[in-house]
Design a binder for these strands. Structure first.
Lengths: 335, 335
DNA sequence: TTGAAAGCGCTAACAC
DNA sequence: GTGTTAGCGCTTTCAA
């Protein structure tokens, strides 16, 4: 490996001058030429680890996601990487698997590696580590945070309660009165609360007996929960699933039971992941600007890194919107 | 930040002894206790950047993928991270967007950061950088490599030609004679070649006029190409798409044209990404053990890292299998 | 087993 | 604008 000292010797200058050239500081043109020539001849590349040790900065940002294979998060990962590359940073990716221990281990590791910043997507399994997150030496931001947002850290998220409300209002306005919910609880409690509020506005209630916990976070989990819901009440006219993957399973369950979506049972999902626009029928769902949010969150962090100031400690909530596709319609018999 | 020197002072020993404790070397029990007490009291965590500068190893492995939001690659990312964490390594993720320039920039960056190894998934946009890849100071392996595998680097992949053959044989055996192909060419040329070989065995040929290049690598691209194929020959009875996302679009195009899958037109995909088992109808596709392959590839690299020897330069091809679901059936009128 | 000294490759601070 | 000096926090080497 070629070092700065070798380049310096070759160019007849000191390390410092080479350093100045590399970092684009003021250098006399003829020195610049000599040094650049030496760099080119020797094929010198600066050692970023050494630079990091000296400066304490690694040009690396950590990203925590619960799972990468989940389409919601893989879009987030992609967008985060986009922004980082554009700003000259690297992405250190860690999956937390909704597990507090994984989260802790990863966090300690990132701290020891001195990442410049950390973005935490999703709050399952992270909540317990909040005190640690607030004590790091680098800026941390929370993304798609659904629980009680901590006051100490900046949060870029959406109003999940309102998002649930949008779904509820849609079903209510269509005339549905007998609605089941398939949910990942407690994490998605706010989505359900919003749905309930929409119905409560008309004096309607969604009983706890109509809320079904999913067994797993894949389509099979949604399928099983929807089967249970249909069995418990064959008369129900709509299902709200707290995320799209569950909704995909729910559509399948409805269809397999001999009913049709949306004629017999409407299904509404949540997230607007890419694939649900193309299932049969295309899914009505609550969307929010994931990529824009991810971009905001990363830029918030990078501003903090580059200014040396702690990040603006704001709660930034982007607006969810309802995407009405073909999986929702008025109930067959309006009660 | 607490340094080793501070711990040493506190424990009344030298840095060296603390270092020995941290790295689990032989230390007298009472010294060990003293040092551990000091570590605990001060909350000392070793600075991994400093360690890396000294040792030249970062416990970090780079992964190149074309895109993360593509479900095929997001599964790969997830599995790679699984294995790395299990072995105590970190994941530095870079998306290459099938672009040689991105690839080059990322590669130089990783080299300067002294990652311990690099796994390159997918070959689009990477081919031109092969000489650079072969010259790095750390082990490199190629994953899901479809082009001519270079002799200088280990490759973990599948036999794409055979995979295409499996799809072709399936359609041929069902009795299809008028088949269109929707392909990402030239990258997926081998898959198409395999398909052709299957038909050639019966003296049948798939004319170039039946091969349609997709316009983009999303479902819309598959949709457009399938529409073109159906327009060019309304009599065709089957479509082979060189990856599942295209197939999803193709199914949609067939359905929208008023035809039915598989009664009027069979559709066969490639990759077996998670979602295609749940579209309507569930897709027949060629599967291969992505996760197992990813695991093999990473472990190959880590063995090389830990042994200090270059990786076994082998071409490891796992076997693809055909998953027959509901999107393929005999043609309505057997020619 | 532990200590002392050296240095990984770079940048910060200051003098010239 | 460029050189000199010092040191980031750790591990390696060698001596005790």
């Amino acid at each position: 490996m070629v070092t700065m000292a070798e380049v310096a010797a070759r160019a007849g200058v000191t390390k410092q001058t080479v350093s100045n050239v590399v970092s684009g500081k003021k250098v006399r043109p003829e020195t610049l030429a000599k040094v650049n020539a030496a760099i080119a001849e020797l094929g010198y590349k600066p050692n970023l680890v050494a630079r990091s040790l000296r400066t304490g900065s690694t040009s690396t940002v950590g990203l925590f996601v619960p799972h990468v294979a989940n389409p919601f998060y893989s879009e987030v990962v992609e967008e985060v990487e986009n922004v980082l590359v554009r700003h000259g940073y690297n992405l250190l990716l860690a999956t937390t698997r909704d597990d507090p221990d994984y989260t802790r281990v990863h966090l300690e590791n990132l701290a020891a590696r001195s990442v410049d910043a950390l973005l935490v997507a999703g709050d399952k399994g992270v909540g317990r580590q909040l005190p640690m997150l607030a004590q790091t030496s680098f800026p941390v931001a929370l993304f798609a945070w659904e629980g009680d947002p901590p006051a100490t850290l900046p949060v870029v998220s959406i109003d999940y309660e309102h998002a649930g409300y949008l779904a509820g209002r849609h079903l209510r306005d269509l005339g549905h009165r007998n609605v089941a919910v398939i949910a990942d609880l407690p994490p998605h409690a706010l989505r359900v609360a919003g749905l309930r509020r929409a119905f409560a506005a008309d004096g309607l209630a969604i009983d706890d007996s109509k809320v079904f916990a999913r067994t797993s976070d894949d389509a099979a989990g949604g399928y099983a929960a929807a089967c249970a819901a249909l069995e418990a009440d064959p008369e129900l006219t709509a299902i709200f699933a707290t995320h799209d993957i569950l909704a995909v399973g729910a559509v399948e369950a409805v269809t397999r039971s001999g009913r049709r979506v949306p004629e017999d049972v409407s299904v509404v999902g949540f997230d607007d992941i890419a694939q649900v626009g193309r299932i049969e029928p295309p899914l009505t769902t609550v969307a929010f600007p994931k990529r824009e949010m991810a971009q905001n969150a990363v830029e918030l962090l990078l501003r903090a890194v580059e200014s040396g100031k702690p990040p603006t400690n704001a709660l930034s909530l982007l607006r969810p919107t309802l995407i009405v596709r073909d999986s929702s319609a008025p109930p067959r018999t309006t009660a």
